[in-house]
């Protein structure tokens, strides 16, 4: 009796199934995620029960807990930030300005800045919040 195992034929791996899974994950990521410029530091928005739906687009001003500022993902000082926003608002006066302040940031760190942005002619300034806990 011959008990030696038969040599298995080399089957190609089922690549189509792998493509399906990766494609599914890709579509899921595109649907669930938002393509926002992330801040170069940690920003956790305040939790709110009454926040409204956030429209897309606009310029994002991020404020860290210690008051560090960033515009559209680039860290910069207040003068540079206001200068860039002034340029944007000159071209697009109706541009939405999103203030993404860390929930632990003191108001003195950015309320004067918001007033300055409003002084530049910004008509729509919103505070970014989240309905979810940490």
């Amino acid at each position: 009796m011959n008990l030696a195992r038969r040599k298995r034929r080399q089957h190609p791996e089922p690549i189509i199934a792998l493509i399906d899974v990766v494609f599914f994950l890709l579509v899921f990521s595109m649907l669930v995620g938002r393509m926002d410029a992330t801040a170069p530091f940690r920003v956790m928005p305040a939790i709110s029960e009454t926040g409204a739906t956030m429209p897309g687009g606009g310029e994002t001003v991020a404020i860290a807990q210690d008051g560090t500022l960033a515009l559209n993902g680039r860290e910069m000082d207040e003068t540079a930030l206001l200068s860039e926003l002034a340029t944007v608002l000159t071209r697009m006066p109706d541009r939405l300005i999103r203030i993404n302040a860390h929930r632990g940031a003191e108001l003195r760190l950015y309320l004067p800045l918001v007033a300055e942005i409003e002084g530049l002619g910004a008509k729509d300034i919103v505070l970014v919040v989240t309905p979810e806990g940490p």
Partner: peptide, 20 residues
């Protein structure tokens, strides 16, 4: 896939208007 996972924000963001 990696690009979208790294660059996307998955927080459910909403807003409160400062000015309108």
């Amino acid at each position: 896939l990696v690009f979208f996972m790294v660059t996307s924000t998955y927080l459910n963001l909403r807003m409160i208007p400062f000015t309108q």
